[in-house]
Amino acid sequence: MKINFLIASILSITTCSAIAAPKIYGEIDASLDYLPENNATKSDRDVWKVNSNSSFLGIKGEEKLTERLSAVYLIEWAFNADGDGTDWSQRDRYVGLKDDKYGTLKVGKNNSPLKKLSSAVDSFNNYVRNTADITSIMPGENRINNTVVYESPKFAVGKEANIEFNALLATGEAQGIKSNQGGVTVDGGGLGDAWSTSITYADPIFLAAIAYDKAIPSNFLGRGFLNATDTHTDIDKVFAAANTLRLTGRIKPIDGLALKALIQKSEVEEAKGNTVGANNIDDSIGWLVGAEYRLPNLEKWNLKAQYSQNSTSFKNDDADYDAKQIMAGVDYSFNKQVKAYGYTAYATFKQADAKDKQPVVGTGLEFKF
């Protein structure tokens, strides 16, 4: 009897563990990049770089509580596939409840709903160590500490379309704004002193979304993939709370072709911890257009091109600061997990008569697991 009870207990524990077992997943992405720099005020500097492009490891899981309700969790850490820097910086992490009818509530550290909109339109996301995408020239690409997030289910509109709504409330815990541990902390001590929200419409052909950040700390005056270790156009980055309105769209007019666009406007919100000079920024306007084309009868090959720019104006007599990046590339997908890619790009960063020019040529390999 005791032996039977022991065997039954072990089988019960094993079964429960199998049901609740976490999933380990991640991505390793490394590239070889050549950056021959042409500077306005400093000596030129040509460099070959091996770059890690948002390589990460994650654990996630879901536990069924009732027929409709589940507990969910996720933890991600970034690491450097090229061996540079410090590994295991923080990415998203949360614990929450998911209701099939009413949506998901998560508590932890999360990407803003506004940031998530860029994944559908930014074809060169994370390239050249996260400097060739819009993160490096536009405000708004933020992961936020101390947040509560609500994600709605997808509400059907007609036969094939749907609408979904996301909202994030953040508290700064009375620390003032800062950037640390792979994320940003907002100003204020109340929940909702800073927030982010988005609404997305999607059908098989068309996707459109709008999002707004209120007082979310972000970087202004970005330098893209400029191969510089110090200031070249004699202008310093500004880290400040930002109010950002972003609109994105994607259309697939024919099989294999996707046309993409983004436009946004950011203004500085007064906050404890804003970088000196933040009050002098009038606004920052950025936009992107791009296209991807998967070759007919050669579905493993994907061609893509993209132009993005961001212009920042000032309240005093300073000239506008303009960052522009144009990129073209090709992907070859061996399967759903492994992709090889190559690209070339050219960027300019200009204020008044000072203009830095930065080309890049690179190739890389991405492995998802």
Rank of each mutant, 00 (worst) to 15 (best):
K357M: 13
M327N: 09
K324C: 08
G362P: 11
A347T: 04
F334G: 05
A354I: 09
T363I: 02
D320E: 13
K355E: 15
K355R: 13
K350Y: 00
K339C: 01
G342T: 14
K350M: 08
A328V: 14
F349E: 10
Q325Y: 01
A345E: 09
G342N: 06
A347R: 01
K324Y: 12
Y332N: 10
D331Y: 08
A345R: 02
G364Y: 05
G364A: 06
G362R: 07
V330F: 02
V338H: 01
V360S: 14
D322N: 14
V338A: 12
V361D: 03
F349D: 13
A347M: 12
D353S: 14
Y332M: 09
S333F: 00
Y341H: 14
D331N: 15
D320M: 02
Y343R: 13
Y332S: 07
Y332Q: 11
T348M: 12
G364R: 03
A319P: 02
L365G: 09
A323H: 05
D356F: 00
K339H: 00
Q358G: 14
S333L: 00
A323N: 14
A328P: 02
A323T: 14
A340Y: 04
Y321L: 05
F334N: 05
Y341P: 11
G342R: 03
F334L: 10
T363Q: 10
K355G: 12
A354G: 06
F334M: 06
L365N: 11
